[in-house]
């Protein structure tokens, strides 16, 4: 049997070899003078998580198309790989290295110090160095808004929140959301569930769907989901049981039109694009950069897919809330600050 096995493998390999030789064209390396070279290091969710990694990727691709920069993106394999990736790109004299996700802070702190002439940017993290732009979002402000919208749209006065894992970032979404719900109606209950305890929680739409169905059965009729690629499961549940959901990070309204009230949009794509443009125009600035309701970095989605949910009085109400938050009249609880006490 051993020989048979070997021959089977050899034969298959030869066939595949022939196929590949014939079918795959040679790699033509474009000999262009590199303009601005941007490295984009995505978090473990990968560039197609339909959530903030893909938003970052989209922003970078837009910059590549419109600004003519060279973009190299890589997806991290594990928590140790971030620093290696940052250093490798820096050594290759990339002009701007963008890291997505808080896990990259440790690595970037060291690498940016080692390469003071290279520019870095990090999304969702803070690195206190002159050559690093720390891009942070006020997610809790947006969560507040969608919370109020959820409460307002709910007919059962029970809404839900589904998070991926119990980590500070998601707690931040949750606390802001609950505050917004209670702003609209003190009597509305919020049911919260978390999908899992390992990284698989961000990639488990089936379980998310099951949790959503359970929450709908327990009375909720609007569920806000902050769980990366698992979110699609919640949208499925919404469609199946004729209830509603709210998406996160990217505008996800298009996925199941009619069932998704809105999405909490975190304009990572805009932030990434703008960082790249700054670099290209030679105007790169290090330091903290806050994106929130004030500058449109955080917003609730309004497009042709959710028109029916956002009638004029609702939009007016939300816009008023927005103005109050921006002006400071309403203070949205920020889990990060709560923890720091």
């Amino acid at each position: 049997m051993w020989r048979v096995g070997l021959w089977v493998c050899s034969f298959t390999t030869v066939v595949l070899f022939a196929v590949v030789l014939v079918a795959v064209p040679a790699n033509v390396v474009p000999a262009q003078p590199p303009i601005v070279r941007v490295g984009l290091i995505l978090d473990r969710g990968g560039k197609n998580d339909n959530s903030f990694n893909s938003a970052a990727y989209k922003g970078a691709m837009k910059a590549k198309r419109e600004l003519g920069v060279y973009v190299k993106y890589i997806e991290a394999t594990d928590i140790m790989s971030f620093e290696s990736m940052q250093r490798a790109l820096a050594k290759k004299h990339f002009d701007l290295i963008i890291g997505i996700g808080f896990s990259q802070v440790d690595g970037m702190t060291r690498v940016a110090k080692e390469f003071p002439h290279t520019h870095f940017a990090i999304v969702d993290g803070k690195v206190d160095l002159p050559n690093v732009k720390s891009i942070m979002f006020e997610e809790q402000e947006g969560s507040y808004l969608v919370g109020a919208l959820a409460a307002r749209s709910s007919k059962t006065h029970v809404v839900g929140f589904i998070g991926g894992m119990d980590i500070p970032l998601i707690r931040r979404f949750e606390k802001g959301y609950i505050a917004g719900v209670h702003k609209y109606s003190k009597n509305t209950r919020v049911l919260t569930e978390y999908i899992g305890i390992t990284g698989e929680a961000w990639n488990n739409p089936s379980k998310a769907k099951e949790i959503a169905l359970t929450l709908y059965n327990e009375g909720a009729d609007v569920i806000f989901v902050a769980a990366g690629a698992s979110g699609t499961g919640v949208f499925d549940a919404a469609e199946e049981s004729d209830h509603y959901a709210i998406g996160v990070d990217s505008d996800q309204d298009w996925m199941k039109p009619g069932y998704i009230i809105t999405s909490l949009v975190k304009r990572v794509d805009t932030a990434v694009y703008s960082a790249i443009r700054e670099q290209k125009e030679g105007k790169f600035r290090g330091g903290e950069e806050w994106w929130g309701l004030k500058n449109g970095g955080i917003d609730y989605a309004r497009d042709q897919y959710n028109k029916k949910f956002l009638d004029t009085p609702t939009v007016d109400y939300l816009e008023q809330l927005k103005r109050d938050i921006i002006s400071g009249k309403i203070i949205v609880p920020d889990y990060y600050k709560m923890k720091a006490k």
């Binding site: 890589i74 997806e75 394999t77 290696s84």
Partner: peptide, 13 residues
Amino acid sequence: ATGLDIETDFITR
């Protein structure tokens, strides 16, 4: 694995 991703155009994670 990380190195392959960085050093080549086609090989991804």
